[in-house]
Nucleic acid binder design. Structure first.
Lengths: 180, 180
DNA sequence: ACCTGAACACCGTTCAAGT
DNA sequence: ACCTGAACACCGTTCAAGT
C-alpha cells in the first residue's frame, strides 16, 4: 500500500491524462484516494503544486528510461528508433498523449509553476536528441532535435485524437528513414 | 457592427486560444459581448455547440487561405513552404498555437461534437498535403502528409510554450529542406 | 501531522418569466 | 426571437476546528 501522497499523484496523473489540467479536480482526486478534498490541500497547497509534481515525476521517469544516449555501441539511428518507440509504448499504455504534450498545448492557461516543469521536460528531450547529432554542428543538431521532438508530440496528439496508433507509426517511419 | 452571434464566436475563439476549451466560460463571453450568460445559450444551446462552431469557422478560414495546391505553377516545395508559413503567421498573429492544435491535445475531454470538427480539420490538412505527393504512391504520400502536419502542430505547441517563434522556424527549415 | 465541514466566489445548464 | 434572474450541482480555495 503506497502512501497518501503517492496515491494522490497517481490519481491526478490519471485525470490530467484523461482531459488535461482542468479535468483534474481536487474533489475527484479525493474520492479516488478516499479522503476529503480539503485534505488534498494539506499535501499540495494549490492545484499548481499538484500538477507540477505530477509533471516532474512523469519527466523524471521518462528521462530515466531514455538513459544515456549512444551507449553500448548504438548508432544515432538506433537511438532515434528507440526514442520514437518510447512514445509509442507510452501511447499504447495510456491510450493517450504524452502527459507533458497535453500540458504543452494548454500552456497559455497553466500556472507558471506547471509551465516551467513542462518547459524543462521539452528542453531535456531536445538536449538528449542533440547528443545524437553532436558531430553535425550546433545549429543542425538543434534543428534536428527540435524537429524530432515536435513531430513526435504532434503525432501523439493526432494518434490520441483519432484513437489510432498508425499516426505515430507513419511519422516514426518517416523520421527514422529521413533524418540522416 | 457585427451581429450578436458573430461577437459571441469572436469572444469564444479568443478565450479558447488563450487557454483551451475549459478556459472559455459562458459568463466571460457574455461580459465581452455585453449580454447575460443565459442569453448566450439562446444562440448556442450548450458549450459544445459554441466550441464546435468556433472550430468550424477557424477550419474553413484556414482551408480557404490554403486554396487549391499546386496552382499557378508552384512546385511541391513551394507549397510546403507556403503551408509552413501559414502556421507561422497564425502564431505571430495570435501569439498562440493553432486553435485546432490546442483542441487536439484536449481531445480526451472534448464533447463528441467538438472532437469531430477537430478531426475534420486534421483530415482536411492531410488531404491537402497528400496532393503534393500524388506521384509517390498512396502510402508514401500519406506518411509525408501526416508527418508534416504533426511536426507543424508540435512545433506550434513548442513555440507557444516557450513564447519563441524560432521553434517553428527550426522545424520549418528542416521540413522544407528534408522532404523531397 | 493529518484530516474535516462549512463557507466563498466561480462554473455550465435549466427554466419560468419578461419584451 | 431575444433576453433575463434565479436556481441547481459542480469547481478551487480558505479556515477554524477537530484528532
Amino acid at each position: 500500500m503506497s502512501d497518501t501522497r503517492t496515491q494522490i499523484l497517481d490519481a491526478a496523473e490519471k485525470f490530467i491524462r484523461r482531459g488535461g489540467y482542468n479535468d483534474c479536480s481536487f474533489r475527484e482526486v479525493a474520492v479516488a484516494v478516499g479522503i476529503k478534498s480539503a485534505s488534498v490541500h494539506h499535501h499540495f497547497p494549490a492545484k499548481q503544486d499538484l500538477a507540477a509534481a505530477v509533471a516532474l515525476r512523469y519527466a523524471e521517469n521518462f528521462l530515466a528510461i531514455l538513459g544515456q544516449p549512444l551507449s553500448a555501441g548504438a548508432t544515432p539511428r538506433d537511438e532515434i528508433a528507440r526514442y520514437c518507440a518510447l512514445f509509442r509504448s507510452a501511447f499504447i499504455a495510456g491510450g493517450r498523449a504524452c502527459l507533458c504534450g497535453i500540458l504543452s498545448n494548454e500552456s497559455a492557461l497553466l500556472p507558471e509553476l506547471v509551465k516551467s516543469e513542462v518547459v524543462a521536460f521539452a528542453q531535456a528531450n531536445v538536449a538528449w536528441l542533440e547528443q545524437l547529432f553532436a558531430g553535425e554542428g550546433v545549429e543542425t543538431a538543434r534543428r534536428k532535435a527540435r524537429f524530432i521532438y515536435s513531430a513526435m508530440q504532434g503525432a501523439m496528439a493526432a494518434s490520441a485524437l483519432n484513437q489510432d496508433v498508425r499516426w505515430l507509426d507513419d511519422v516514426t517511419e518517416w523520421i527514422v528513414r529521413g533524418v540522416h
